[in-house]
Structure formats: C-alpha cells, structure tokens
C-alpha cells in the first residue's frame, strides 16, 4: 500500500516547523507516524507536504515547571513515558497508562503528542489526561495558547487544532494519589472496548477528598464521569453504595457500535470495571 505522493520537509526547530506549516497549504505534521502511516496508506489523508518533527530535540524533553507541573514535550514516546523517572514520580498513572498502549515496537515510535492530536475515541492516554486535568500548549508562528485536553478533543479524530497549529507540550499537574487505570480489549495490542482512569484520594479518617474519573472507548470522545465523582466526594468511603451510583450515572451513555463491540456490551464492561476499580480505591488498596 502506497500513500499518495507528497513533499517531505524535515524541521530542525519548532520555529522552522511552524514556518513550514504556515507556508504550505495542505501540510500536516508527522510525529511517530504510527497512526498517520495507516491513514496515508489508505489515502484517508492526502497531505501535499509532510513536516517531520522527529529531528527537534526540544520536543523530546521532560521538565518540571517552577510550580511543580510536569511539562512533557510532544515527541516524548510511549516508551519514554513508561521509563522516565520524572513522569513516574509525579504522575505514575500516566506511566501505567502508556504500558497499556499497543506493543513494544509501536511504543518505541509513537508519541504522546501524536496520540492526543489523533483524538481516537479509544486512545489510552485521553481518559488519563482528562482525569489529571492536563493541558496542551498549541503554537503557530504568531500565537501560543493553552487548552485543557478535555476541551481540545472535539470528537472522533477531531481536535481544536487549527491549520498551522502544532502541539508542542503537554502540561500535567502532578498527582501522587492512589489510582487505577485499565483497558479492556480482546487482544492486548488492540484499541480498548472500554477504558477507565480513576484517581481517588482518601483522608486519614476514610473520607473521599477527591475523585477524578474518566472513561474512553464509550462515546465519540473520552470524557469525565462527573456524576460519579460528585456522588463520591465528601462521603465516608466505607458507606458508599457503588452499584446505586454507577447504574444511574451510566444510564444515559450511548456507547460506540463497531466491530470491536456493541453499545450494550461496552456499557456492561464499563460498569463492571468501574465497580471493581472504584471498590478497590475506596477500600484504600494501593495499586
């Protein structure tokens, strides 16, 4: 399978990449290429120019901001997200999430920025980044803005990124609270049929101080389950009746229907995961 012909431009810096994107109508960024190559081969995308951002060292950096926020470059690979000690210490849920993505080879090449920009409804990072209240930094030759991941993802394969705009960084507020992140798929390398990322902190006397829960592979985009979050917050963890919360809170969901799983099945799997994962978190079991 061959993509349609295109020109190839290798950017050496963020500024050069942004200039290339601006100067070439119909251009597109290539990051790890793990989602893009299949799109090019099937000719769903037919860019005139590909701007390669693999040769820009600053996009591979992981830093801690002065306020403690993690700043992860767009080209940090899934492999690096698993291995990087700064990420592991400050947002362990993110490293655990990357372990669930695809396989060894694809994790060596695929990037966090590429996965976010692809906006696949089943992408593993998205629920986790939403639960973490993460933001992305988007740049053009003229502008720079920060957008919450939750707002950035608009629908299947749709984001707020405009022509000429590039994702340069992911900002993650640190979270060391207890968490669970799981994906359910028929085979491990497959995209999820249901996925859940949950962060729950309990006070010393067992009250739920904070609960942030998101799900993916359900609707046209991953999203927070705020009804469940608010039903948990402030409650004594021992007194929570999870079934009574999860049932109604997921009633309105209209999950995806594709060859990996129908809507009823997806919802059934989701409810099972929520009940088990939140049950563990409420009982204070460490991951």
């Amino acid at each position: 399978m061959y993509p349609k012909s295109f020109e190839y431009l290798r950017a050496k810096s963020v500024d050069q990449a942004l200039q290339y994107l601006k100067d070439n109508e119909g251009s597109r960024v290539i990051a790890g290429g793990q989602s893009l190559l299949p799109m090019l081969k099937s000719r769903l995308y037919q860019p005139t120019v590909l701007v390669d951002i693999n040769f820009i060292p600053e996009l591979r950096e992981v830093k801690l901001g002065s306020n403690g926020d993690l700043r992860i470059g767009a080209m940090v690979t899934h492999y690096d997200v698993i291995e990087n000690s700064t990420i592991r210490e400050n947002a362990p849920i993110l490293s655990s999430t990357a372990e669930n993505i695809a396989d060894v080879q694809i994790r060596n090449r695929g990037t966090i920025g590429g996965s976010i920009c692809e906006a696949d409804p089943s992408a593993d990072y998205l629920p986790t980044l939403m639960a973490l209240d993460a933001r992305v930094v988007l740049k053009t030759t003229e502008s720079s803005r920060e957008v919450k991941v939750e707002d950035f993802i608009q629908g299947p394969f749709e984001t707020l990124a405009e022509d000429g705009e590039m994702l340069v960084e992911v900002i993650v507020p640190p979270s060391k609270a207890n968490y669970r992140v799981e994906k359910y798929a028929r085979r491990k390398a497959d995209f999820a049929i249901a996925s859940v990322a949950a962060i729950v902190s309990l006070s010393k006397d067992g009250k739920v101080v904070d609960a942030r829960i998101a799900t993916g592979a359900q609707q046209d985009k991953p999203h927070r389950l705020r009804e469940i979050e608010s039903a948990l917050k402030g409650k004594a963890s021992k007194s929570v009746n999870l079934e009574a919360i999860i049932g109604p809170a997921t009633e309105e969901l209209e999950p995806l229907d594709d060859l990996h799983g129908g809507p009823e099945y997806r919802k059934h799997v989701l409810r099972g995961m929520l009940s088990r994962m939140l049950g563990d978190l409420l009982s204070g079991k460490e991951a």
């Binding site: 793990q34 190559l37 299949p38 390669d52 080879q105 694809i106």
Partner: peptide, 27 residues
C-alpha cells in the same frame, strides 16, 4: 500485514525494535 500489526517487518533502530512498515524511508 503492512498495517503495523504483525511484526514481520521489525528492525532495530538505535537498538530498539520498531516496525519498518510504519516509518518512511526519508525519516
């Protein structure tokens, strides 16, 4: 497969395995 699934095209790139059907030669 030519779709990134089967791994028959696996090579080592700077010592790490990647699937060479999922990368452009110019990269």
């Amino acid at each position: 497969c030519d779709t990134g699934h089967c791994g028959a095209c696996t090579i080592l790139w700077d010592g790490k395995p990647v699937k060479s059907c999922q990368i452009l030669a110019v990269q």
